[in-house]
Amino acid sequence: MEESWLAIYEALPYLLKGSAVTIGLVAGALALGLILGIPMAINQVYGNKYIKIIISFYVWFFRGIPVLVLLFLFYFGLFVLLGLDLSAFKAGILVLGLRSAAYQSQIFRGSIQSLGEGQMLASLSLGMSKIQAIWNIILPQAIRISLPGWSNEYSIILKDSAVTYAIGLMEIMTRGKFIATRTFKPMPIYLICALIFLILTYGGVKLLSELEKKVRIPGFGNKGEGN
């Protein structure tokens, strides 16, 4: 028992460094997914036929392949083929981010469509251009509606990030495996890994639900309060 505590004590700083890598990876992937996902969603609702087909194909591709397969396909395949010498960290962000874009685009698309066409019609009838309407009217509402789904996406990517173990990225899992093998104490070490993930999931989701409360539109969701 004592040895287990000792192993944990010695492993903890090392694993926490791995957490920083994981957080960086997840933040990068979420950001990339957001930057690509929002325009994809907009074009899936308002774009022309061809762009819709291209986006649907993209979404179909990235949602239909296991993340580990994607990671290998890109890291050992495509990136090599293209002569890109990417670090495991950058490759991880790219693959998880491109994949997240597919999922995020569907979150935002659903939110945009849930607004109904009236918001766009009213904007256009004031003389706004389509782009002005999307930017000033549609997105501010759609993003609010998307927050719960986005929070879910965060917790999924966080957990999926452990697959970068397979390309040797020094994140939580890779480090955990390394120490577990060296100390012959897999149980306590992996427990700590699990605990770190739990804390990161809880913290992130909590943070996002705070944000959700902060940007909530007054009067929504408190029916029965009169007027």
């Binding site: 009236g118 918001q119 019609l121 009213a122 904007s123 009838s125 509402q141 539109i217 929504f220």
Partner: peptide, 12 residues
Amino acid sequence: GMVFQDFNLFDH
């Protein structure tokens, strides 16, 4: 100007 049956106010 246009005024709609279901208002279409900007809810946010």
